[in-house]
Design a protein around this nucleic acid. Sequence first.
DNA 1: GGTTAGCACTCAAATGCATCGAGTGCTAAC
DNA 2: GTTAGCACTCGATGCATTTGAGTGCTAACC
Lengths: 345, 345
Amino acid sequence: MDLDMRKMRILQAIIDDYIMTATPVGSRTISKLPDISLSSATIRNEMSDLEEMGYLEQPHTSAGRVPSEKAYRLYVNSIMQRAELTEAEKRFIKNCYSNTLDEVDEIVRQTAWVLSSMSKYTSMVLKPALTAVRIKHIQLVPVSDGRALAVVVTDMGVTRDTLINVPRGMSYQQLERVSRILTARLQGCPIRDVASVNIPELQADLNSQREFLNNALAALHKTFDDGPGGVQLSGATNMLNYPEYSDMSKARSFLAAIETKDVLYKILTEAADVEFSIKIGQENQEKDIQDCSVVTAVYKVGGSAVGTLGVIGPVRMDYARVLALMRHIGKSVSEVLTNLMEEER
Amino acid sequence: MDLDMRKMRILQAIIDDYIMTATPVGSRTISKLPDISLSSATIRNEMSDLEEMGYLEQPHTSAGRVPSEKAYRLYVNSIMQRAELTEAEKRFIKNCYSNTLDEVDEIVRQTAWVLSSMSKYTSMVLKPALTAVRIKHIQLVPVSDGRALAVVVTDMGVTRDTLINVPRGMSYQQLERVSRILTARLQGCPIRDVASVNIPELQADLNSQREFLNNALAALHKTFDDGPGGVQLSGATNMLNYPEYSDMSKARSFLAAIETKDVLYKILTEAADVEFSIKIGQENQEKDIQDCSVVTAVYKVGGSAVGTLGVIGPVRMDYARVLALMRHIGKSVSEVLTNLMEEER
DNA sequence: GGTTAGCACTCAAATGCATCGAGTGCTAAC
DNA sequence: GTTAGCACTCGATGCATTTGAGTGCTAACC
């Protein structure tokens, strides 16, 4: 018993229907479709085969059939056809980025919003990882004796600062000098490489406390990593509109999973190196969301991936549409960010 | 028909019971209480009176009675007695602040967590408003021609920065000079007054673009206002444990209300000038949360109020306990923040 | 061979109906 | 003023019945 074209076509029809209605699909529903000219009895036979092959499941004897996760996997791999957004939708996305979005956070928030409101699922966007961003300028600002604020300006217009300890008694002029040397040495250096840079001319100044520089650079490095706080969530309540979450306990477990963003952060960072990723139900490592599906995509700045965006929805999510949205929105946010970066450079 | 002591006592018993059980309270339940030696018939008569007076409501004829919002108002105003936390609870709170909490954000997050996990409701904490914080140091860091980063260090260890436009062609030395003058002039000045300070010696430097300074100061001022982003939320899913939210549509409207933090921000900022505030159901201005109650309190740094914390829960919330928690946690966070600030000063 | 009409069968959901019981209001007696 | 007693209300609970969408199987058909 093999999965011939006709079975494929029927499975597709079942999945398409189930994605729309969330109710088990009966044989008559399929046989009535205009491009399937088979009686319900034939469909029943095929469905029976598909069930035996593990693509369909029956909630109970006298109900219709429901696609299994295996079916969805097949669907996204082979059956599903690429969907395109309408012109109006593309315009809509474009409009969302046309306003004055001059801050990374603002762009990330807006992206999450567009994605959730167009998909009607819950969306999440991970802020750009700034490890690839290059240092433009470093300035140590004295705060009190023994403490200074290290300010880093990068080529993406992003600035970060962190309080660091400096050797007590260090003068304003000395700090200035260190700033100048650091800037000269680290200019153009990507954040991720900061720790490994060697700055011989400072060894003399800091002989007594050679830890200082390493600590400072490590602290700096850390401020560029937002952690779970770098996850922007949107449309969490959209999920409650789907019948699969009308059961309170399921709704609660979903909401609990996204309340602390740790799980989402983990998912998004792990997906940082694949263009598109689709995890269906049990394929997700995280217990709490094993009856959801997660679709992620990366977005880029100047050609290299810097962040991830994702949609989390019911397993019967409209994968084709979500992928189309992600392609388009991913491209848009990539462009906007790249422009922002060039402008600042 | 007046509200004599006995009626008060009965109303209190009804409210106490309803807060615990969330089910309409019958006359027998009350008459069986050890310190009420009246028959259920007598209680019924009293209940009938209380209903006529608007303190009780009947879901339907053969159900018990439920306190009205008017009753809760009376309860918090006159009936409720001050509750105290147990020693163990006080210790618990203390422990929560004993770890290395060296950042304001960390303290705020921790506070929200303690408050929600001890109250079992949803909690929110507004970050300290930094308008009262005093400037310690200002440094302009050149970024590119015409742009600089203005870094402000305050006496609370909080630093903020913002990109500003500076007159093109301004030299590094000039920026240095401006920094020094600004620091000298603004040192000790609370953020809120920054805009109104006059700095005559800079007029000469900036004659050609006298807008520059004002814009820069305004931009700075703005970075100290977190807006809705300054609301830390915790325990949102706690609410789903209460039967009043087992109705999906109510749960959804609550979750929608807190998803964007705008509403909460509004509530918390408006409550910034009252030590404790209790809003019961319809007393809340915001439509979305009119079947919740909101209790807020301010916390202080060095004696003056800088932020607000709040609990949002069902109208039948345990007001006495929540107030006790808020008193205690409010005091704790005030102390921790005050210490942090002194240390940095 | 594959396809289909027909039919018995299944089972969740809806419907109808009687019962139960927690609660009330009222009245008469204490 | 308080209380025992009693009729009454009405949602909740339980149970039997019906309904209907769906299945599987078989026999006939092309």
